[in-house]
Write a protein that binds this DNA or RNA. Structure first.
Lengths: 194, 194
DNA sequence: GTCTATATAGCGATAGAC
DNA sequence: GTCTATCGCTATATAGAC
């Protein structure tokens, strides 16, 4: 039948990647190329013209997800904010933002966790994590403060993975206080730790 | 050939469950029954005598993991401690336990995260989470303090999923301070939040 | 660039011997 | 209680038409 009207090859590629995310999120490991292709509005043969193999498709999907996460953090950097903890604040905002859509958040994290089981993918993700962590450690905050804040943000963002609800107001409060601690690290450091 | 000398049916069952964990951790959820059986030292047919189907095996594996996690927390309850935050402290200890001697418990978390991509498993885990969360909310701490402490613990425990190392001394410091906050919630609550 | 049709392989599950 | 053999299904990937 040839090319679908109004859809460029790049559009098709993107449609397939989107469909891959949706279908794998929804059906888990059992998602087949046929399934993904149908959701993208192409045949399996059509899909395999754009991606040489399923591994190739997965690899591209992970690359896309990591890039989207990175871009999300960068978009949340406050341009008027040049103080220490600038990146850490953007990190907290990025991880706590999806609170509104718990299902999508849970599924995105589960998707990355699932994909991480492919050794090659695990290396990609770990490399990305190392890079981001290095930047967080160089963000100008005392290490113990940065560790607390990012750990708490990581915890909230991973909670939906276990089916926990994070809609309560206590999580909003937590977000505000984590941000505030990055602005005034002494609030944490001056606590009389025994 | 009959029963392998010195191995009871219960031993075989446990060996299969252990092997299932190992193989799925290494190869992902698509690991085949053949693979699992070989690692357990039985044939596929032998495995399927003990577990009616692959779904049944997965279900039992998850049940075992959840139970082990529960037991781990309970073992970390301080018998001499009857103050508010008692369970929260055990929870923090369980999640931040040193990597060296608690590798299995920690890997279980990563494995559970993987298995959560199976919808039926997600429901099992969510039910368990709800129960534990209810107990944490009833642990006698101010909600905001409990939320901070458990979020931070969750964050540290999920870090290995992304390939991050949590061996640095800052994580030990974090553990000590999280515990201390549960003992003196006013340390957190009396901070002059704007 | 996308389709249909098909080759090929691997998986879960069953049956029956021992 | 465990094995081997095999069935039936589904999935990936290829080939070739349009």
């Amino acid at each position: 039948m040839g090319r679908t009207a109004g859809r460029s090859p790049a559009d098709t590629r993107r449609a397939v990647l989107d469909a891959a995310g949706d279908v794998i999120r929804a059906r888990g490991v059992n998602a087949s190329l046929d399934d993904i292709a149908r959701h993208a509005g192409v045949s399996k043969g059509g899909l395999l013209y754009h991606f040489a193999s399923k591994d190739d498709l997965i690899r591209e999907l992970v690359r896309t997800l990591l890039e989207a996460f990175r871009t999300d953090i960068e978009n949340r950097l406050d341009p008027t904010d040049n103080d220490p903890g600038r990146l850490t604040r953007a990190y907290v905002r990025a991880l706590l933002a999806p609170l509104d859509d718990e299902v999508a958040a849970r599924q995105s994290i589960a998707l990355l966790a699932l994909l991480t089981t492919i050794p090659e993918v695990a290396e990609l993700v770990a490399a990305d994590t190392d890079q981001l962590n290095a930047e967080l450690y160089a963000d100008g905050l005392p290490v113990d403060v940065m560790t607390l804040v990012t750990a708490a943000a990581d915890g909230v963002s991973s909670a939906p993975l276990w089916g926990a609800s994070i809609r309560g107001p206590e999580f909003r409060t937590l977000e505000r206080r984590l941000i505030q601690i990055t602005r005034q690290p002494e609030l944490w450091e001056s606590i009389p730790w025994s």
